[in-house]
Nucleic acid binder design. Structure first.
Ligand SMILES: [Zn+2]
Ligand SMILES: [Zn+2]
Ligand SMILES: [Zn+2]
Ligand SMILES: [Zn+2]
Ligand SMILES: [Zn+2]
Ligand SMILES: [Zn+2]
Length: 898
DNA sequence: GAGTTTGAAACT
DNA sequence: CAGTTTCAAACTC
């Protein structure tokens, strides 16, 4: 599990810096190499993941059951908060693995594109650091800004987007450091991707090379410093952000255009996430910046700092990547196989985490031995820790975003593996921000750099099975140990400093539990449910969900799992369609829509317009699996979803063969298809976009569950990270802890989980591979073939066999659409909103964005639809997003209700 | 901050 | 599997 040997070697040499060095040397040479380098970080991880991945592949539950690797165990620890890093790592690993194994050229290109596009957005959103700003500027130059809104607009889906986009972002950030170069680099990547596109070789190369580059890029110390300064001026940044955002968005768009497929996937995610991020990020960013600065100054060298910023972005990227990866995997037969592998690994990892709960510490220690230094090792380990850390940071509230965050974190971890303290801090920041919702984007600015690499890596990893390996490696990372040792533990409740917030949301924006009777060992507890240990911010009474009680916690988990094996899996799953390169926007739209709850909600009075609704809280629309009454879910109505599914199913049936052929022959042709979006313009649009994008298939069945369990691991990592930080800077440490230092680790871990979960879901599909693939192709075909299909389909689709429910819905959908449309109409709100909601980071309701996109993007088509498991965090709450998003709908709901 | 509402989780 | 109870968050005031 510790597999990340390579990384370890690097790490051992020296902390973060060493890592960079090790990798950097080779990479720098060519732009391609840079791309690769970005990706590369993942590679090391890959190896690790792969091993794990294989182990855990098949049965997620197994993961819990068998802790193979000590490392895994470490990860198990939930420390959570810092999800960003760890997730990122895992993702990266997964990506790498994928690449190495199968690699699908198309995917890579897409991923890259998506990443690229995302970064810009993130950066803009985050407005975090100067670097970000620079990036933005760069991006501006490169690309036209038009679509910025779109990204921002879709707050909900943002998470996935981030993951996908992040990688790009990171790159951009790095480039930013260099300044102008960033654009070029991204472009280069795209080009390379495009050129190689289909070839597996490229992906592999990328991963390796990317690693080098990653290290190198991060290395750019100069930028980091700048960033720090800028961070100080966070407020300024916020102002700038707006500007940047526009710029970034433009950039992103450009990138996306180049890489249609990737961009699309990422875009959708980004949109969703970004909105969320936007709002909170500002606040978080400020805080984070302070922290970052502190950290950077004390511990991190300039290099690290930049990474930190990037880390945040990375988190998101990781998520995105996952999506992308999955999608890619689906598209390619090989990819599908790989996805399975990854998934398994993930599941195993998660399991490991649980089991390891106790064990974890040991494993982590081992890994941690390498500690910060081990790049590779750290990454993997970091992932585990990340999850925990992330979780800790964002736990309950963050839920939806958490998954994203986690993934991001993992990515970040991976990319930065070497990062050490700065990264950690960054991660935390990121986490926090991410937790908030979209806000994370603010911080992410810096993160973007890392993210790019991590993202790419993630995507690759996911495809191959590398994820597992990566994950395994995690534990090794020192982070876990440190966190654990310190104690995180305890922390939570007692520590005075941090906890201001009894309320669910942490300062960071992360939410914490307030359990009084459940001892935090039941799913009633958000922390426990998220797979993370309770921490400082928690105000729980009689809490047994602490690091020290690993055994107890594991037992509780096992019991619950025995009842419901899916209990700790990610609640939200995404169907991602492989978006054709052409329509990034569409992809974005799709992603958001695609995500849905596995179980669905059972709302009777809330109309799915308030957070009482899990779907809404997770920023996802209701689906056929929901039993809600009078659903008005702002993210998507059940009816709409149903109708779409039906239509799709019909289309599939009718045109499967045709479509398949088409896709095979001309994957790229898709473009024209936009129809669905256009058609859907009105109320139904949203639903269509979702369905179409996603794929109709019932989310549950198709979508796999993500594993959240891993969160514990993350926490450990986070703790370790925290510990380290604390050592170096007490004052800073305090701050971090309060905020959730989960640091980078936390996010990564989360991401890892999410990624894992995704993998799981994917895997089944992959196994089904042919079947799933077909679907994808079909989906794409659908769009292409019948732009109108959605509508027509809807009307006709009623038959749809697959759909269990909901013919009625179908009808209804048509009528209801207006509300949605309204939302859609208001495109800007999301953007504007994001920044604001201080209290919580709410993700602005996706609809507007999505729909906008759908409408605007017109063209997007999704060549293939894949179900991606987004790792939607088990906790939807994480995000702050809810507010903004929720508000719109809520208002409506309220009025409607009474 | 107290009190109410809500729907999931847990239990029967 | 349904019905009920328990629970903690979301929401309201
Ligand atoms: Zn609790
Ligand atoms: Zn708690
Ligand atoms: Zn607790
Ligand atoms: Zn609902
Ligand atoms: Zn629902
Ligand atoms: Zn609903």
């Amino acid at each position: 599990m510790d597999s990340p040997e390579p990384s370890k070697n690097n790490d051992k040499g020296s902390s973060a810096a060493t890592i960079n060095t090790s990798e950097s040397p080779q990479v720098q040479e060519s732009p391609f190499l840079k791309f690769i380098s970005n990706l590369s970080p993942i590679q090391p991880v890959k190896s690790c993941h792969v091993t794990q991945g294989f182990v855990g592949l098949n049965s997620p539950p197994i993961v819990f059951m068998s802790p193979r690797i000590s490392c895994h165990r470490e990860t198990k620890y939930l420390e959570r908060p810092q999800c960003t890093q760890s997730p990122g790592v895992e993702i990266s690993q997964s990506d790498n693995g994928d690449k190495s194994i199968v690699i699908e050229p198309p995917y890579d290109s897409e991923k890259l594109r998506s990443q690229l596009s995302l970064p810009g957005e993130f950066i803009t959103d985050t407005t975090l650091k100067a670097a970000d700003v620079k990036n933005d500027e760069n991006t501006r130059h490169c690309s036209p800004p038009p679509s910025v809104d779109e990204y921002l607009a879709d707050p909900v889906d943002t998470d996935p987007i981030y993951s996908a986009n992040n990688p790009d972002v990171k790159q951009s950030d790095d480039t930013v450091a260099s300044s102008s170069q960033s654009k070029e680099i991204t472009l280069k990547y795209d080009d390379s991707k495009d050129g190689h596109g289909d070839k597996a070789e490229e992906p592999l190369r990328l991963s390796q090379e990317s690693n080098k580059f990653h290290q190198e890029k991060p290395v750019n110390v100069e930028e980091p410093e700048k960033l720090e300064e800028e961070k100080n001026d966070v407020e300024r940044a916020s102002q700038e952000h707006t500007n940047l955002e526009s710029n970034l968005s433009a950039d992103v768009l450009e990138t996306q255009h180049s890489h249609d497929s990737l961009a699309q996937c990422a875009g959708s995610e980004l949109r969703d996430n970004t909105p969320e991020l936007m709002p909170e990020p500002m606040q978080d960013a400020k805080e984070c910046e302070d922290c970052d600065e502190m950290v950077s100054t004390s511990h991190l060298s300039t290099e690290n700092i930049p990474r930190g910023g990037s880390e945040a972005t990375l988190k998101y990227h990781g998520i995105r990547r996952r999506c992308l990866q999955f999608g890619e995997a689906f598209s390619n037969s090989l990819g599908s196989n790989n996805s399975h592998m990854n998934i398994n690994a993930i599941s195993s990892q998660t399991k490991m985490v649980k089991l390891s709960g106790p064990v974890t510490s040991l494993s982590t220690q081992r890994c941690s031995g390498t500690g910060n230094f081990q790049v590779t090792g750290c990454k993997p380990s970091g992932i585990g820790l990340h999850l925990n850390s992330i979780i800790n940071a964002m736990p309950p509230g963050c839920t939806t975003t958490t998954a994203m965050r986690l993934s991001d974190g993992l990515q970040g971890m991976k990319s930065t593996s070497s990062i050490s303290v700065h990264n950690m801090e960054n991660m935390k920041r990121c986490l926090i921000s991410s937790n908030v919702d979209g806000q994370s984007s603010v911080d992410t600015g810096n993160e973007g750099h890392e993210i790019d690499a991590s993202i790419a890596a993630d995507s690759f990893i996911s495809e191959s099975s590398s994820l597992a390996e990566h994950i395994a490696s995690y534990p090794a990372s020192a982070h876990d140990k440190r966190k654990l040792s310190p104690t995180d533990a305890g922390n939570s409740e007692e520590f005075p400093s941090k906890k201001k917030k009894k309320t669910t949301t942490d300062e960071n924006g992360c939410k914490r539990c307030n359990c009084k009777k459940s001892k935090c060992l039941k799913l009633y507890c958000d922390c426990f449910a998220a797979g993370i240990y309770c921490s400082e911010p928690c105000s729980c009474q009689g809490c047994l969900n602490r690091e020290g009680n690993e055994d107890t916690v594991l037992e509780a988990r096992r019991q619950i799992e025995s009842r419901n094996p899916l209990a700790f899996l990610p609640k939200v799953v995404q169907n991602t369609a492989d978006v054709p390169l052409n329509n990034m926007e569409d992809a974005n739209l799709t992603t958001p829509s695609s995500a849905r709850h596995k179980r669905g909600c059972n709302c009777k009075r809330s109309m799915c317009l308030k957070k009482y609704c899990e779907c809404y809280q997770a920023n996802v629309g209701c689906s056929s699996g929901c039993r809600c009454e009078g659903c008005k879910n702002a993210y998507g109505r059940k009816e709409d979803y149903v109708t779409i599914e039906r239509a799709l199913s019909r289309e599939r049936l009718s045109s499967k063969t045709d479509l398949l052929q088409i896709e095979l022959h001309d994957p790229h042709h898709l473009s024209p298809i936009t129809p669905s979006l256009q058609c859907s313009d009105q109320g139904k649009e949203a639903a269509k976009s979702r369905l179409s994008e996603k794929y109709l298939p019932s989310p549950e069945s198709d979508v796999n569950m993500m594993l959240e369990a891993s969160s514990y691991e993350c926490q450990k990592d986070c703790k370790n990270m925290d510990d380290q930080l604390s050592q170096t800077r007490d004052s800073v440490a305090n701050v971090l802890q309060l905020t959730p230092l989960s640091y980078p680790e936390s996010t990564p871990s989360a991401s890892s989980f999410s990624s894992k979960a995704k993998e799981w879901t994917d895997i089944p599909q992959s196994r089904l591979s042919h079947g799933t693939i077909h679907q994808l192709s079909v989906g794409s075909l659908r769009w292409r073939s019948s732009p109108n299909t959605p509508r027509t389909g809807l009307g006709e689709t009623q038959y749809v066999p697959s759909l269990e429910s909901d013919n009625k819905l179908f009808d209804i959908l048509e009528d209801e659409t207006p509300d949605i449309l309204k939302e859609v109409l208001t495109p800007l709100p999301n953007k504007s909103v994001k920044a604001n909601s201080p209290n919580q980071k709410r993700v602005s309701p996706p609809h507007s964005h999505l729909r906008r996109h759908g409408l605007s993007s017109s063209g997007s088509l999704k060549s293939g639809r894949k179900f991606i498991l987004q790792s939607v965090p088990s906790f939807p709450p994480l995000t702050p997003c809810t507010d903004s998003k929720g508000k719109g709908r809520e208002d409506l709901d309220n009025s409607s209700r009474k």
